[in-house]
Design a protein around this nucleic acid. Structure first.
Lengths: 190, 190
DNA sequence: TAGGCTTAAGAATAGAAGTTCTCGAATAGG
DNA sequence: CCTATTCGAGAACTTCTATTCTTAAGCCTA
């Protein structure tokens, strides 16, 4: 039997997320990917086949771990509190880094059908989860029955993407927190 | 005296905006830029010096024309109507294309200080213009004096960036229109 | 009309980047 | 302990791409 691999795929994924966040897909060169992931070229191409296939895997990992953890806040908490928790976690995730999925959409969305599909799925899921949270908030009498739930969910969904863009630019997150408080406050006043 | 150039710089800029929107900065190759702008290599490098310097020029042009036209809606109309008009025009601008400035921020923001500066300036201006519109709406008694103007402006600013991302993914703009109506409706209820 | 200067077009170049290949080293079973 | 097999490191290769260079043609002035 041969020697065992020295790399850990979870570590590789984490490092790769950082590299792609910093430089984008085309801006990230294989030399840096190999170096920072403590991988080796041979193993890389045996494991993933190509840089593009690698991106898809990293994106999948990013969704299944980081984004999933944030979205689960919507299920783990009750009503409006769930949405507050979501934004709290999301801010921690994207602060000063941005969102890998959003970056892929803006860089590759026009050319890559698969990226668009992944993006639409994510947006849809986000919206569905917001709707569920809002409905539970209505049931718990935290929100008025007159709340236009689907429209509010759409609004929140769009706002989340804007968050990811602004997070790349702003130094401190105080402003983003304030804007979010206001947004959620206005939702509560239906 | 020599012959006159055959290209028109305005045309070149317009075409370049499309190319960069479709492929991003690194994804856009000089061959396509040259071909689609009806430019020529020699003239290109005499005029701009490099692909990167060209991007800055295109981005400046994009701001001074397309984004400026949209932002001017905030000055040309009164109160809340101004903000409605803004989103109407912005939706037309980014629908199915996205925003060149947002795309540059997400693709190059981490590596390029100049892009970050341009992005921050844009965000600041957007916020200042929103604040001015909201203040006028309060003066005209369209909004309550209790409206937290700065926080609402922050919220709108973030929402605009999300718009630009979603616009790349969604086919029809009906959903985005609904979300915006809801957002502006909730602002009016302070 | 002739000449000089600039343009357009694209070939050429130099360097970068994704992918493949080579080879010595390490590991686990026989 | 030997050997088969896989790994790690990086050289090599090939393709791609930004930039420069060459050449022929056009335009304005004298």
């Amino acid at each position: 039997m041969p020697r065992a691999p020295m790399y850990d795929l979870d570590d590789v994924m984490h490092q790769a997320i950082d590299v792609f966040l910093e430089h984008g897909f085309h801006g990230a060169v294989m030399d840096e990917i190999i170096a920072r992931t403590d991988f080796n070229r041979r193993g890389f191409y045996l494991e993933f086949g190509s840089k593009q296939a690698f991106l898809y895997r990293v994106l999948e990992y990013y969704q299944n771990t980081q984004l999933h953890d944030v979205l689960s806040a919507l299920e783990q908490h009750q009503g409006i509190q769930a949405i507050h928790k979501f934004f709290e976690r999301y801010l921690d995730l994207v602060q000063g880094r941005g969102c890998l999925l959003v970056n892929c959409i803006t860089e590759l969305g026009h050319d890559d059908e698969k990226i668009r599909d992944i993006g639409r799925h994510y947006i849809d899921r986000l919206q569905i989860d917001f709707i569920a949270s809002l409905e539970r908030a209505v049931s718990a009498h935290e929100l008025s029955k007159d709340t236009p739930i689907e429209a509010v969910a759409l609004q929140l969904t769009s706002y989340v993407q804007g968050f990811a863009v602004n997070a790349i630019l702003v130094q401190d997150n105080q402003e983003l927190r304030i804007a979010t408080q206001t947004l959620l406050g206005s939702v509560s006043r239906y």
